[in-house]
Design a protein around this nucleic acid. Structure first.
Lengths: 110, 110
DNA sequence: TCGATAATTCAATAATTGTCGAATCATTGG
DNA sequence: CCAATGATTCGACAATTATTGAATTATCGA
């Protein structure tokens, strides 16, 4: 993962409503949730939710598909893995972070 | 780690210069680096660097201490651990991410 | 104490991001 | 086709974040 995309992903998650929405989507699993359900759960108007979901989508953190009148959003677990991998390799090197990241990351990666 | 602090940390890293600075600090290890060295390495004016370092500091991602005329910044690995732990637990649950399977993530990922 | 060095704070401005009602688009059932 | 539903786009505005030069603070060496 490039630094540029990492920044997009971090920025997408660095917002109250979007972090909450993403967590709900993670909990929902591959089934995902319709935009309206997320808006209602978070108590934000549909247009605002749409804006935030577009951000998450642009960052590659969620995927979407229409099902009848609803548009279903689902967490993109691969992107989350990539983000965690980047942070673990580039921002946790050398020292103590291995504790929290059970994976054996013995390289520095620039 | 609370969601609120997670958002602060994510927001602190979601910026080109700050992510770059943090990576340099991680590479530098516990020794840390003076503010001026970071500013020069990133090609940003001192006042801008100071602003960004304050953000990282406010997010708890770096610590600082004066040494002679320089102020040395060092990555706060504990905070990074907390951030990764939060993301792993709250945004990766249930399915494919590192939470359940710390290293070998051969699942969904798409 | 003075001058130089390292960094921060201040203040003004630019740029980006967030909010949300109204209008619009897509889909379904009658 | 029409009305209703679910969602997005548009547009105007508010709020936050980023950038920097100039002024200020702290420290050191002579």
């Amino acid at each position: 993962m490039q630094a540029d995309q990492t920044i997009r992903a971090l920025g997408a998650l660095a917002q109250e409503h979007r972090l909450a929405a993403f967590r709900l989507l993670v909990q929902a699993g591959p089934e995902g949730l319709p935009a309206g359900a997320l808006a209602e759960a978070l108590g934000v108007p549909p247009s605002s939710m749409s804006f935030h979901l577009a951000q998450l989508s642009h960052a590659g953190l969620v995927s979407q598909h229409r099902q009848s009148r609803s548009i279903i959003y689902a967490a993109h677990f691969g992107a989350m893995n990539d983000l965690l991998a980047y942070l673990t390799e580039n921002c946790c090197a050398g020292a103590s972070c291995a504790a929290a990241a059970p994976c054996n990351d013995e390289r520095i990666a620039s």
